[in-house]
Amino acid sequence: MAANMLLAIQERLPDFSGVERAVGKYVLAHPEKVLQMNTKALAQAAGASPATVVRFARRMGTAGYADFKIQLSAEQHTDPLLLQEITPHEDLAMMKDKLSLRIRQTLTDTNQSLANDQVDAAVAQLAASQSMSVYGIGASLLAATDFVQKFSRLGLAPFLGRDIDEVIAHLVNQPAPGVVVLISNSGENPNVVTIAKSVPAGLTTIVLTKAPKSTLAKMADIVLVTQPTSITGQMRTAATTSLMAQLYAIDLVYYRYFQRRYKDHVQRIQTSFETLHRVQPRRH
C-alpha cells in the first residue's frame, strides 16, 4: 500500500486508463464522499463501471475496494495543500511537511517496487564478478558516486564513468565476468542507452530506473525499479525524490552484498576506519 493514498493517486494519474483516471480524479476531489460510497455509487459519480472501480483500487496496491476505503479513511484529514507544488509565499513549516510527505511516499513505494528476486540477482552477479563499472548523468551521477564509495570500502574498485566515450572505451576492456550498473530515472537518456548497446558479452547489465518498460530497462539483464514521488504541475521536484529512491536502492543492494561475507566485510570496514584515523591529522 502507498504511504499516502491521495498523493499516490495524484502521482499515478498519468499511468491510468481514461476511465481509471476519471475515478482517481473523483477520489481526489471528494475523498470524504467516497468513504460513504459503494462501488456502484462511485462508478456512477465518476462515469465508470463498478469493475473499473475495483480494478482502480487494486492498482493502488489494495486488496479491493473495501480495503482501499480503509486506507483512504486514515487520510481524510490530509491538508489538500500538501498535495500541491511549492508556492512562492508558503512558510517553512508547510514546505517541510510537503517534502517529508514525498520522501516517505518515495521510500515506501520504492521498497515495494524493488523485487526481492531482482535485488538478490544483482547481488549474486556483483559477488561473482571480477569487475564493476557504474554510470549515471546529472542527479544519477551522484547515485553512481555513492555506489563507488560504498563498494570501495569493501576492497573493490568500481570504475566510475563520467563521459560516454570514456565509458565505452572502458567497457571494451572490462574483465569478464563483470557488471555494468546504469542509472537513469527515465530509462530513456540517449547517452545511457548508447552505453547499454555497447556492453559486450560476458558483462551483466544492471539498470536502476523508475521505468520498467523503458528502452534501457528492456536492454538490461536485471532491473531495479524505484518509485520517486514528484509534485505535479509546471515545477517538478523529481530530481530530489529520484535521488532519494536511487540511494535507498543502492543501500539495499550494498547491505545485501555485505551479508554474503559478513565477517570479512566487517573487518574491511574496521580496517579502513582505523587507517583513516591513523593517517589523518588529529583535529582539535
Rank of each mutant, 00 (worst) to 15 (best):
V123I: 10
N38C: 07
S49N: 13
L72E: 03
L107T: 15
R21T: 12
A122V: 09
T108I: 10
G136T: 04
Q36D: 13
S17K: 14
L28A: 00
I86R: 11
A121R: 12
L114T: 11
I103P: 04
S131W: 07
M94H: 07
M132K: 09
Q105T: 10
D109Y: 07
S73I: 01
G61I: 05
R55N: 15
L101W: 12
A51F: 12
R104Q: 14
L126E: 09
A22T: 07
F16V: 03
K98H: 04
Q36Y: 02
A45V: 02
S113Q: 12
M95H: 11
K40D: 14
A51W: 11
M94Q: 11
Q118C: 07
L99G: 08
T39W: 00
M37R: 06
R59N: 15
F68E: 02
I103V: 14
M94Y: 02
T108C: 06
L82V: 04
F56C: 00
V123P: 01
K33Y: 01
H30E: 09
V123S: 06
R104L: 11
M60H: 02
P50N: 08
L83I: 08
Q84P: 11
E90D: 04
G136N: 03
E32F: 01
T39R: 13
V134R: 05
L42Q: 01
G64E: 00
H30N: 13
G64Q: 02
P80L: 11
A43L: 03
I103L: 13
F16M: 13
Q105Y: 06
V123T: 06
A139Q: 09
M37P: 00
M37F: 10
S49A: 14
L83P: 09
V54P: 00
R59V: 01
A121S: 14
L82G: 03
Y65M: 04
G61V: 04
L83F: 05
S133D: 10
D120N: 14
L126M: 14
Y135V: 12
M60P: 03
I103R: 02
D91M: 04
Y65E: 01
F16I: 06
G138V: 05
I103A: 06
A46T: 05
T108S: 12
A93D: 13
V134Y: 06
V134S: 03
K33I: 00
A46D: 04
V34C: 02
F68S: 02
A29E: 15
Q44F: 12
A63C: 03
S49F: 10
L35F: 00
A51Y: 12
N116Y: 13
A45M: 04
A127K: 09
G61W: 00
H30I: 00
P80M: 09
R59A: 10
L114K: 09
P31T: 00
V134I: 15
D79F: 05
A121M: 07
E20I: 08
M94T: 14
A93R: 12
P31M: 01
Y26F: 15
P88D: 09
G47H: 07
N38G: 13
I137T: 13
L107S: 06
G64A: 06
Q125K: 15
